[in-house]
Design a protein around this nucleic acid. Structure first.
Lengths: 153, 153
DNA sequence: CTCATATTGACAACATGCTGTCAGTCTGTA
DNA sequence: TACAGACTGACAGCATGTTGTCAATATGAG
């Protein structure tokens, strides 16, 4: 019947399930890494974007692959907690630039240090070469999934 | 400084970011595959669990790596839409068994057929061998992340 | 300069999944 | 049998991120 999968299809389906499971664990690990700084994965991502360069909420959304509305909600919470502030943007009256406060920078430093310890340990366990090769396939899959549209409804 | 990452740590961090991005795309693809059947990825997962064997909401939660509360919400929606029904469980008065209705089975078949076409195409593009090797590393990472606890707060 | 168009922040509604809590329902042990 | 502890469904509340919509602000073509 038409719903049978080829061996290659089976392999990709198993790969996809594994990737989704790993992503769940990585998400949890990210939350755990950010927790001692009073943050979460989502807040950490926005802090990191603002640290990379002062940028508007919409900019950060594009950089993070999220909608600007989603970033906006997190950024408003970060501002309320005093981790970022909205600086005037000389080039745009409405689109303020998110910048880290001292507290925000300190929180980000804490998380980065913890993340380094964690990533170094896992890198050692798995092996640099194996990780690099798997990353290539993951990136290839990313591009293929983006390009390959889902079969028409 | 203590937050410097080793080459292996850099490799793992890049790998993690790629995996998280791919997971997002796979999630979107899953929603797109399920959409013509009027379903979503979450509903599809619960339907598939109930199709594999009649099971309680808590059983499905364990099988899917989710909390029973999360499954419960989706399952209640599926029941309301007539895709599953809660059958009496001779072994437990409260824990009813989710079973597919005809409509539910039909929806699942539609999704499975579409998923096969999609997975076969992506498997062809990426290559069975490369996918299998990457899957091994992803699984190894899964086990390592589970085992490796995050550095103490 | 003017005006159609795109961009941006703000707000509401929704989907998904989590933790916490409670009261029923088993289950194993004394 | 009796009862402590585990399991289960139900419900509330929260975090995350999405789509849709609106008004204010830039931007570019004429």
């Amino acid at each position: 019947m038409s719903s049978d999968r080829t061996p290659a299809g089976d392999a990709f389906a198993a790969f996809a399930i594994s990737v989704l499971r790993l992503a769940g664990h990585l998400q949890n690990a990210g939350d755990a890494l950010a927790k001692p700084a009073g943050q979460t994965s989502a807040r950490w991502q926005v802090l990191a974007a603002a640290d990379h360069a002062p940028m508007s909420v919409a900019d950060a959304g594009r950089a993070l692959g999220m909608t600007r509305q989603g970033v906006q909600r997190v950024a408003d919470l970060l501002e309320k907690d005093g981790l970022i502030l909205y600086a005037d943007n000389p080039a745009h009256q409405r689109a303020k630039l998110m910048t880290l406060t001292e507290r925000g920078a300190a929180a980000l430093d804490t998380i980065k240090a913890r993340q380094a310890v964690w990533a170094n340990a896992l890198g050692d366990v798995l092996g640099t070469k194996e990780i690099a090769e798997a990353t290539q396939t993951v990136i290839a899959a990313l591009q293929a999934v983006e390009k390959q549209s889902v079969p028409e409804g």
